[in-house]
Simulated assay, not measured.
Amino acid sequence: MNIRVLLADDHALVRSGIHSLLRTMPGIQVVAEAADGATALMEAETHKPDLAILDIAMKGMNGIEAVRHFRARCPEVRLLMLSMYSSEEYVMQALNAGASGYLLKDSASHELEKAIRQITQGQRYLDSFLSPEALEQYMRRVAEKGSNIEVLTPRQRQILQLIAEGDNTKEIAYRLSLSGKTVETHRAQLMDRLDIHDVPGLVRYAIRIGLTTAEK
């Protein structure tokens, strides 16, 4: 039986390249594509893929937020995170959100195929360049000190991402169907919880934890 794959990346050329690569792999079929997390969820509900491959840094709803929504709305879909970043924090954010695997974008094609087959068999897959020892050390640090991002609500994480992508209060309010005052309240609360009190600091933090990238 074919492994049915949904592919989500906000760069059309990247999607096209990965799609072409997947077509060369026996028994793997791309059934849908998306340019953002929200569209990926809708396509998943329509096409019922076995696996979704998600870019970690998409505009609007990034890959990590999409994983959380997939777990709630499409729990049967297994999730592979695709990223340019190998830091332990990015990896653990993805795994803690519910991803079954984490693969770097510069990985060899055979590793992508291996990840897809392993994950659809119910196993976890981490890129061969990632260090299990470094991940264990990171998990110990988080267990001892906690992770700031986990204290934010989903709405605060969403607003943090939009701030980092350059949206102002009015634009955020329009996109999320909120009042400007509500957006300002959420921003003040997330600044307080993160102990970061300026927008450049929020942008740097959002990039560091994988909510967005410098190129966005």
Score class of each variant (00 low, 15 high):
40 A>E: 05
167 D>F: 15
208 R>M: 08
63 G>S: 03
93 Q>L: 15
57 A>S: 08
25 M>G: 05
66 A>W: 10
48 K>D: 05
32 A>E: 03
109 S>V: 09
7 L>W: 04
209 I>V: 14
21 L>N: 03
9 D>R: 06
141 R>H: 10
29 Q>A: 07
159 I>D: 03
11 H>K: 06
85 Y>T: 00
30 V>T: 02
188 A>Q: 14
88 E>L: 01
136 E>A: 11
178 L>E: 07
141 R>T: 06
40 A>T: 04
41 L>Y: 03
28 I>S: 05
94 A>H: 00
43 E>L: 10
167 D>W: 13
94 A>Y: 00
59 K>E: 09
112 L>S: 01
1 M>W: 02
142 V>D: 01
9 D>Q: 08
93 Q>T: 04
28 I>L: 09
208 R>N: 13
117 R>T: 10
148 N>Q: 13
143 A>N: 12
56 I>S: 01
127 D>R: 10
139 M>A: 14
86 S>N: 12
173 A>C: 09
114 K>W: 04
131 S>M: 08
141 R>L: 07
18 I>H: 04
15 R>Y: 08
49 P>C: 06
15 R>T: 12
90 Y>I: 06
141 R>Q: 13
191 M>Q: 15
212 T>K: 03
189 Q>D: 12
61 M>W: 01
22 L>S: 07
72 A>S: 12
95 L>E: 01
13 L>T: 10
100 S>T: 04
54 L>K: 04
28 I>H: 07
39 T>K: 08
197 H>I: 03
164 A>Q: 03
97 A>Y: 01
107 S>I: 11
200 P>W: 00
79 L>D: 01
50 D>W: 04
25 M>V: 14
1 M>H: 06
156 Q>F: 09
36 D>V: 03
18 I>W: 03
8 A>W: 03
54 L>Y: 03
145 K>Y: 08
97 A>I: 02
127 D>C: 15
132 P>F: 12
76 E>Q: 11
183 V>Q: 05
36 D>E: 15
16 S>P: 00
189 Q>S: 15
59 K>G: 14
155 R>A: 09
152 L>Q: 11
60 G>H: 12
46 T>L: 15
215 E>C: 02
174 Y>H: 09
11 H>N: 11
23 R>L: 15
197 H>F: 02
123 Q>H: 12
29 Q>Y: 04
186 H>S: 07
198 D>F: 02
114 K>V: 13
173 A>K: 05
73 R>V: 09
147 S>G: 09
50 D>F: 05
162 L>H: 09
86 S>Y: 02
159 I>R: 07
80 L>I: 07
74 C>D: 08
27 G>C: 09
150 E>A: 14
37 G>E: 06
177 S>L: 10
137 Q>K: 10
34 A>M: 12
25 M>L: 14
24 T>N: 13
177 S>R: 14
103 L>P: 00
42 M>P: 04
174 Y>T: 12
172 I>Y: 10
24 T>H: 07
48 K>W: 00
69 H>K: 07
